[in-house]
Simulated scan of single mutants.
Amino acid sequence: MSRLLYSVTMSADGFIAGPGGDMSWLTPHLGPNPLVDELIGEIGALLVGRRTFGGDDPHRGTEKEGKAFGGGWEGPQFVLTHRAPGSPVPGVTFVGDLARAVAAAKEAAGGKYVNVLGADVARQCLEAGVLDEVLTIVAPVLLGDGVRLFDRPGGTDVRLERLRVDHVPHATNLWYRVVR
């Protein structure tokens, strides 16, 4: 059965994007990461937020721009949005409801991971009780402002069980299971 995994690179101070969704900070931290290389083969579908889908790209200006994992992954993508574009996008399905988006992505993933991309979609998945795992790749940089990994006004505790910790030259991988 497919599981939902939120994978993300964040700064050491907890930001996944800079102010205004700027992703240029990430470019110098995109380096070899054996865990990510291994994970890419285990992803069957993506569940993506609308802002992430239409947002900034750390590969901007290169041949990798606009491609999932810089072109390292191809497959079905499901974008959670109430504002689908007027023209179809090849390989992308726009869905206006979280439950339907999760169900469609899980079916398309065929037993592999559904990789969640986007802080708001990850938060919604957590609140709905459908997020299974979190992979946080911590880059050695402080941003000071931007989009937080997890932001919920009023706060909440989400218990996590550590599954794996790996240190690579340019980051630390922290893989958790969401405790329900």
Rank of each mutant, 00 (worst) to 15 (best):
P19Q: 12
G75W: 01
D22G: 08
L47D: 01
A68R: 04
V114F: 00
T156Y: 09
K106A: 11
G41H: 06
P34C: 12
G86N: 11
P34R: 14
H29I: 06
W25Y: 14
L35N: 11
L143W: 04
F78M: 02
E42L: 12
M23N: 06
L30K: 06
P85A: 09
T93R: 13
N33T: 07
A119E: 02
A109T: 03
A99G: 10
R148H: 14
A84G: 11
K64W: 12
L163K: 14
I40P: 00
Q124N: 10
A84F: 09
A101D: 02
D132T: 03
D37P: 03
E133R: 14
L35G: 13
G20T: 08
F53Y: 15
L80D: 01
A128S: 12
G61Y: 06
A103M: 09
G44I: 01
H29A: 06
V116D: 00
S87F: 12
H82A: 13
G110H: 09
L30Y: 10
R123T: 15
G129Q: 10
G54E: 15
V158T: 14
A68N: 09
E161K: 15
K67G: 04
L149C: 07
L39G: 03
A45P: 00
G110R: 06
K106R: 15
T81Y: 03
V141K: 05
E107F: 07
G54N: 11
G146L: 11
L126I: 13
V141N: 09
R100A: 15
A119N: 02
V114R: 01
R51M: 07
G71W: 10
P28D: 09
F69R: 05
G20V: 06
G96W: 07
A84R: 13
V147M: 10
V116M: 03
E107R: 15
H59P: 01
G21H: 04
L117C: 11
G129D: 08
V158A: 07
W25S: 11
P19V: 13
L126G: 04
R100M: 09
G49A: 08
K106E: 13
A103Q: 14
G66I: 05
L163M: 13
V147K: 05
G49F: 01
G18H: 09
L160R: 04
G31M: 08
R123S: 14
L160C: 11
G55C: 04
R164V: 04
N115M: 13
A103P: 04
E65R: 03
V114W: 00
E133Y: 07
F150V: 14
G70D: 06
D57K: 06
L142T: 15
E42I: 03
R162W: 08
V158K: 02
V158I: 15
D56S: 14
D37T: 11
E161F: 07
V92A: 02
D22A: 14
L39V: 03
G20P: 05
V95C: 12
L163A: 12
E65K: 04
E161M: 08
R152T: 11
A122Y: 00
P32R: 14
G18E: 05
G110K: 06
